[in-house]
Design a binder for these strands. Structure first.
Length: 465
RNA sequence: GCUCCCAUCGUCUAGAGGCCCAGGACACAGCCCUCUCAAGGCUGGUACGGGGGUUCGAAUCCCCCUGGGAGCGCCA
């Protein structure tokens, strides 16, 4: 039996990291078992579904590399099929028309709540549905009234629900649109989903879906309900607390594999390992290693992981990403230096590509000013001689490589009877405008002699004035 | 209110009865390395929610309590 999993988002809002984590686990599980991963867009809510939201889902999945083997399927394109099942159930008495009005239902609900009962449909139309003037009926599923439903959940274990707790849910709205629980059931059945991996919040829907699946005559898939992801403050993920579009992470300079690695470790673990390549995750992931409790997002750890992945990533690839980030800062990189060289020098000292871009601007554009504190400390009459000697020595340097620059710096320090820092730091401020940069030899090598000499002259003039 | 789920450092987690007076990671502090910033190395503090059982022995099993969450929609 081939494993078949599906990610079934509804295009009513952002695709945020909660959804992405679910998608990731579905995808990983399929990949791990040589199965099929399906993308299905649940757009039966005509009111709130938007094409823009669909596009965000597609773009997000593409960026993350969570490629679907089938789909995307759209529920709105499967209405004929839903209709067919409903008609059959109606004919077989497994579903029935209900003429109760929204007001009546509201009333019933309030009464039950007042009596401290669980609000549920009382089944009034189940046995004697009275067609009423001007009311287009909805269709309800006739849920079994006795017995129990057992969910054998891959992460939660055995969970039992009493049918007496369930009511006859609406499967077809009066406007002709089928509803969520019904569509999911039919789709999972038709698409031969073997493993339903989704958020914890669906555990309560599962017995209803199982009852309908049994009516369909279906074999039950394996269910795996993932724990929720919470905001950094431990509260539910909301717009104020981390529920931003996944594409925003791309813009902020996170690597897809770092985000995925981070998300995988929210609920899943493999011993003490923290850093995983995509390949490793595909090989090691198993639903049995997923835990049951909700997890809060920790932005610091995401940053750290991103840096770890940045350090391990290919320079050429990163160069492309860096170029995009620099373009956002309106920095033209076409005049050099070589982006890959910059990446090599910067990638272990940046949390994100955005940070990397910000601290790399000086490679492409002469700093417009010096950081006040850095200049005050390093561009002084005392350091001026060092800068002048450095300028002179560098101007005469034949081999402009990090190695020779390093040797030259060392010689300069020795001759001056000072530490390397006394020489390097003023130069750093002179060429970068600030007190932070990659090692001075690398920095100068990348910058090129022309720029270095020019900037040194400018700094010397700055002190002199 | 009813039903269901969950509960180890601040956070993510390891732990499937003795290997645990609880291990790793992020963050934090200190030290080392060092031309800055990082990276890396070392050290440190902080956790099994509470109470009952079961057992020779419980973070691990059972029960209760407490706390958190989800569902109860002609939303998904």
């Amino acid at each position: 039996m081939t494993v078949r999993t599906r990610f079934a988002p509804s295009p009513t809002g952002m695709l945020h990291i909660g959804g992405v984590r679910t998608a990731l686990f579905c995808w990983l599980y399929a990949r791990r078992h040589g199965g099929i991963f399906i993308l299905r867009v649940e757009d039966t809510d005509r009111e709130r579904s938007t094409p823009e939201a669909v596009q965000v889902i597609l773009d997000g999945m593409a960026w993350l590399g969570l490629d679907a083997d089938e789909g995307p399927y759209y529920q709105t394109q499967r209405y004929g099929r839903y209709r067919e099942v409903i008609d059959r159930w109606l004919a077989e008495g497994k579903a029935y028309h209900c003429y109760c009005t929204k007001d009546e239902l509201e009333q019933l609900r309030n009464d039950q709540l007042a009596r401290k009962e669980k609000p549920r449909y009382n089944g009034r139309c189940r046995h004697d549905a009275q067609p009423r003037q001007g009311i287009t009926p909805v269709v309800r599923f006739a849920n079994p009234q006795e017995g129990e439903v057992v969910v054998d959940d891959a992460v939660h274990g055995r969970v039992v629900f009493q049918n007496s707790e369930l009511d006859d849910l609406i499967i077809l709205r009066s406007d002709g649109n089928p509803t969520y629980n019904f569509c999911v059931t039919v789709d999972d059945w038709d698409m031969k989903i073997t493993h339903v991996i989704r958020g914890d919040d669906h555990l309560n829907n599962t017995p209803r879906q199982i009852n309908m699946l049994k009516t369909l005559g279906g074999e039950l898939p394996t269910y795996a309900h993932l724990p929720m992801i919470l905001g950094p403050d431990g509260a539910k993920l909301s717009k104020r607390h981390g529920a931003v579009s996944v594409l925003q992470y791309k813009e902020e300079g996170y690597l897809a594999e770092a985000l995925l690695n981070y998300l995988a470790r929210l609920g899943w673990s493999h011993g003490d390992q923290e850093i995983f390549t995509l390949d490793e995750m595909c090989k090691l992931f198993d639903i049995t290693d997923v835990n049951k409790s909700a997890a809060a997002i920790n932005p610091d750890k995401l940053s750290w992981l991103n840096q770890q992945h940045l350090m391990r990533a290919d320079d050429a690839r990163l160069a492309g990403e860096l170029q995009w980030q620099l373009a956002q800062l309106e920095v033209d990189t076409s005049g050099g230096p070589d982006l890959e060289a910059v990446v090599a020098a910067q990638k272990e000292r940046a949390k994100t590509l955005k940070d990397m871009a910000a601290s790399s601007v000086f490679f492409f554009r002469e700093p417009a000013w010096y950081e006040e504190k850095a200049a005050k400390k390093n561009l002084t009459p005392e350091t001026k001689p060092h800068l002048e000697r450095a300028h002179e020595a560098l101007a005469g340097l034949g081999d402009w490589s990090a190695e020779s620059i390093h040797a030259l710096m060392q010689a300069l320090a020795e001759q001056g009877g000072v530490g390397l820092g006394k020489i390097a730091q003023p130069i750093r401020v002179a060429v970068s405008g600030g007190s932070v940069s990659p090692p001075i030899d690398q920095t100068l090598a990348i910058l090129g002699s022309e720029q270095v000499l020019k900037r040194l002259e400018r700094a010397i003039a700055f002190i002199g004035s």
